[in-house]
């Protein structure tokens, strides 16, 4: 796109700038729509699992329910508690929302269709997701209220704990792919399993790591069974307790954007991203973005499934799982994977 603007007589710098802005809008606006639809889909999934009907009044089959909710939230009054730290109180939801969006810059949707095809893509994802905790901590502290503060402390400890094992899981993937670039990681998965299956998850050394990653990604996005941050039975609504109107909606949108992001990462890192599941020529006629969306939808269904069926963890169990099970397990697998690669690839020029 930059080239097109250059041909229209812009200098390269400005052409790049305008092209990037357009690229951001092209990703962010459909993402917001996707969030709205996915909230509707998730409510339908929960309803089906609980033998209920779910949203079915607004629009055909209740399809417009999320937009009705959005409109309602938009029209409400923004309430700022008198004892809250006003600046930070308002910044916190913006931080959450922004951080949830910026990660999408490096997500490849199709060959060549990515906003920033950077060498350190995976590190960027890790860096941006480690920023996500600030929205929650700042919200909890600035609300100047007990429950949000508890929630902030829990969120900080939980995110830091699970990020460690996620980091090691990502390293095993990087060891196999030999690159931090997300597009390149997808390309490396072509015909990975017996020259037939396009997925790192097919590998016996990487499949357990995918399980760890899947569970950790639920913990990282504060989903059940790890939703102690907003455990409604003990903390009202966690860090969102004092929020209303748009500031509440921003938390909500950010949270779901993060969930979709984790689904996308599951698909890209372990299950072949935009590649079809099997390396068979006719399957490549379907555009890659549809494969990616299909995989993301499947993982999102799994997220909803877990949320509808699994009870919440206790906090000490959560910490035990993170530090005493996932961390040693992923460390052992880093050693195993690098050992296996030394054995099979060392000196092979790879």
């Amino acid at each position: 796109m930059t080239d097109a603007f250059v041909r229209w007589g812009m200098s390269y710098d400005w052409a790049w700038f305008v092209a990037t802005i357009i690229g951001i809008l092209v990703i962010a606006l459909p993402l917001m729509l996707a969030v709205a639809m996915i909230i509707y889909a998730e409510r339908k999934i929960w309803a089906a699992m609980a033998l209920r009907r779910g949203p079915n009044v607004v629009g055909p089959w209740g399809l417009l329910q999320s937009f009705a909710d959005g409109l309602k939230v938009f029209l409400k009054e923004t309430i700022i508690p008198t004892s809250a730290n006003k600046g930070l109180f308002l910044i916190a939801p913006i931080v959450t929302f922004t951080v949830a969006l910026i990660v999408w810059a490096v997500i490849p949707f199709q060959p060549g269709v990515v906003l920033a095809d950077v060498n350190v893509g995976l590190l960027y994802v890790l860096a941006a997701s480690s920023l996500g905790v600030y929205g929650v901590i700042v919200a909890g502290w600035a609300s100047n209220s007990k429950y949000p503060f508890f929630s902030a402390l829990r969120a900080a400890a939980q995110m830091v704990s699970y990020e460690v094992s996620i980091g090691f899981v990502l390293i095993t993937v990087v060891l196999y792919a030999g690159t931090f670039n997300l597009s390149q990681i997808v390309v490396e998965q072509k015909g990975f399993g017996l020259g037939l299956v396009n997925a790192f998850g097919f590998n016996l050394l990487l499949f357990p790591m995918w399980v760890v990653f899947f569970i950790s990604s639920m913990a990282e996005t504060f989903r059940t069974p790890f939703d102690l941050v907003e455990a409604e039975s003990e903390l009202v609504a966690g860090h969102q307790t004092e929020y209303s109107s748009m500031s509440f909606a921003l938390f909500w949108l950010g949270e779901y954007a993060n969930v979709i992001l984790m689904c996308a990462l599951n698909a890209i890192l372990f299950w072949g991203g935009w590649l079809p599941p099997v390396d068979w020529a006719p399957l490549y006629w379907i555009p890659g973005i549809i494969w990616l969306f299909a995989k993301m939808s499947f993982f999102f269904f799994c997220f909803g499934w877990v949320k509808a069926t699994v009870p919440r963890y206790r906090y000490d169990q959560l910490m035990r799982l993170g530090w005493k099970i996932f961390l040693p397990l992923s460390l052992v697998f880093v050693v195993l994977v690098s050992g296996w690669l030394m054995l099979t690839r060392y000196g092979a020029g790879a």
Partner: peptide, 21 residues
């Protein structure tokens, strides 16, 4: 990226944690 991951993502979170408490 390391600066963001290590300092912003880990060290500063702990700072904030301690200072808030």
């Amino acid at each position: 990226m390391l600066l963001v991951i290590v300092y912003v993502g880990a060290v500063a979170v702990l700072f904030l944690f301690v200072v808030m408490m």
